[in-house]
Amino acid sequence: MMTIRYKISNHLFLSVFSLLMLYPVIWWIGASLKKTEELRLPTIWPSIPMWENYSNGWNFSADYSFAHFFGNTLLMELGNVTGGVLTAAIVAYGFGRLQFKLRGFWFSILLLTMMLPGQVTVVPQYILFNKLGWVDSYIPLVLPHFFGGGAFFIFLLVQFIRGIPRDLDEAAKIDGSSVYGIFFRIILPLIKPALVTVAIFTFIWSWDDFFAQVLYISSIDKFTVGLALRMFIDQFDIQWGQLLAMSFVSIMPSVIIFLFAQKYFVEGIATTGLKG
């Protein structure tokens, strides 16, 4: 009895709260179906839904459909996520578990790199990448992820690794495991939820990272979804319906990834069993 009422109140609270958070999304879908003249009206839903905002938006460019841009972006994301997940854990293990000279110094540097606003390093970085001949390729966008995936994720994983009791390492050591063995057999499985978090965030944030994309990608053949979306907004010519429709479509991969990947990060280690 008690638990059923508890469950119902839980669901009630959560659905009301979800609806509140989703209200803007509903507004967004409505707006994406409106004619331009109708957008200024306070109504949520259009009088006649313009589904062609979606089809026209999808095919706005004579050269490529959005499928091409989605393909490009997913390809870039594949690199980013692989790079981030692969290397962030390695580096975090080094910082979080191992003793070595100047560890504190390097860790401070790692944190400091996050504190300098990117706006002032973007130009020297562009000059560097330009000299290397990497402009108009995905390398400047993807490569940095292979170097630890960024300070944010390294620090995140360090915190998770430090939350794992050392008894486990000690036990493994007695069994003859090296530091490498401990990493692969103990730490890596235990931080799986955090790694999924890294993967999701890497995916979502690089999807959003318009400023870097606009700098480094110049030919339409290589455009990402983010770049393609900006094509709808010119100085005096904004295709509102198509813009809203396509930007809605553009966040769908992130939504889907989030929806399905979360079961891994929330499963946690409770079921894996930690002690005994």
């Binding site: 400023f211 110049s218 770049l227 094509m231 100085q235």
Partner: peptide, 11 residues
């Protein structure tokens, strides 16, 4: 190489 106004002047 072509883009919209904002991106152009940012780049």
């Amino acid at each position: 190489e072509f883009m919209a106004w904002d991106a152009y002047w940012q780049k």
